[in-house]
């Protein structure tokens, strides 16, 4: 409590007391003014809260309006066409949607197990004094701007993969039956796999910090009972903690997926921006966000611009659904804990 606050509170109290005696009329006026100000402030905050809803609707409406020319021209075919030719003005979203889904899938393939294992380490194995520093360090990964991942991926990670992992994959798995085509072609360095791995690093902190929080919310009694039966640390985590925290963990994973789907800069640097669907995950491709980032300012003609906005609309709808599911699941576990 500092002095200025108590003073301002006391001021009003005194002023009101003084007003009682001399003139009932002026007291009523002051109270009226206060009531008016009160109502005005309330309505102002309410308007701001509704403003958040308006903002989201405005985003959706403006994207729909912007994409009408492209959707009118190509119809449903826009979603399933593989062609993207600015010169002949024929546009199809499939390569970008495909790239978005595949890179995010690769990212989740690596980030989910690693993120969960880190959460397991932090909650069950790590000595107490080390928990906070490691937790903060992992969360720092989330604070690094995506463009930093992009520039690092382009100059350091992609050349590294080109010289080591990719030739290895091509040499071994590339000749394997069934999955061979996935690892075919020359090692470009940049491409879907590189983008997916960068995304994995980026979303790792989301999975770790949410799973850690829900792991910690598991009632100690449950864990102690399992330990009392003679379960090992891993068995407790696998059979008691994980099932109990399942909903929250899935929520965290969906949240991370939402991020991975919409991430722009980190992917744009290393995806290669090639509008085609390749069997090999080592080949360059493109994602929705990378296409928009690379081509929007250079897009000439209304149809081209509109096609890019339509891509943005598709991305927004996909991430909206994923994020809504994530929030719903997290809300459910919050209610259970709270």
């Amino acid at each position: 409590m500092d002095s200025s606050r108590s003073q301002s509170v006391a001021d009003i109290a005194i002023r009101e007391r003084d007003l009682i005696a001399p003139a009932a009329g002026s007291r009523a006026r002051v109270l009226d003014r206060l009531r008016l100000g009160d109502a005005a402030f309330r309505q102002l905050t309410r308007a701001a809260a509704i403003g958040v809803l308006v903002l989201l609707s405005a985003v959706i409406i403006s994207l729909i309006r912007g994409s009408i020319p492209a959707l009118k021209t190509f119809g449903f075919g826009f979603l399933v066409s593989e062609r993207w030719n600015p010169v002949t003005e024929i546009f199809g979203a499939l390569p970008a949607v495909y790239g978005t889904v595949i890179t995010s899938f690769i990212a989740m393939l690596f980030a989910v197990p690693i993120g969960l294992m880190i959460a397991f380490f932090l909650t069950e194995l790590c000595p107490k004094w080390l928990r906070r520093p490691i937790g903060i360090a992992i969360e720092l990964l989330a604070g690094i701007p995506s463009i930093i991942y992009g520039i690092w991926g382009l100059f350091v990670f992609a050349p590294f993969l080109q010289e080591t992992l990719q030739p290895f994959l091509i040499g071994t798995l590339g000749n394997a039956p069934l999955i061979g085509p996935l690892f075919g072609g020359p090692p470009y360095g940049i491409g879907m796999l590189t983008a997916g791995l960068i995304l994995a690093i980026m979303v790792l902190p989301f999975i770790t910090s949410i799973s850690r929080d829900v792991f910690e919310a598991v009632p100690a009694v449950l864990k102690e009972a399992a330990y009392g039966l003679g379960c090992t640390t891993w068995e407790v985590t696998r059979n008691v903690v994980l099932p109990y925290a399942r909903v929250g963990v899935i929520g965290g994973i969906m949240l991370a997926l939402g991020r991975a789907l919409g991430e722009t800069m980190a992917v744009t640097f290393v995806i290669g921006n090639a509008h085609r669907i390749s069997a090999s995950i080592l080949a360059p491709g493109t994602t929705i966000s990378a296409t928009i980032a690379n081509e929007f300012t250079e897009a000439v003609g209304d149809l081209y611009t509109s096609a890019l906005i339509a891509l943005g609309l598709i991305l927004f709808v996909i991430t909206f659904i994923v994020l809504a599911i994530a929030r719903y699941l997290l809300l459910r576990i919050e209610r259970r804990i709270g």
């Binding site: 903002l55 985003v59 919409g262 722009t264 966000s289 980032a293 991305l315 927004f316």
Partner: peptide, 8 residues
């Protein structure tokens, strides 16, 4: 909105 893609 907090996690919506910023490019949108």
């Amino acid at each position: 909105l907090l996690s919506a893609p910023s490019i949108v």
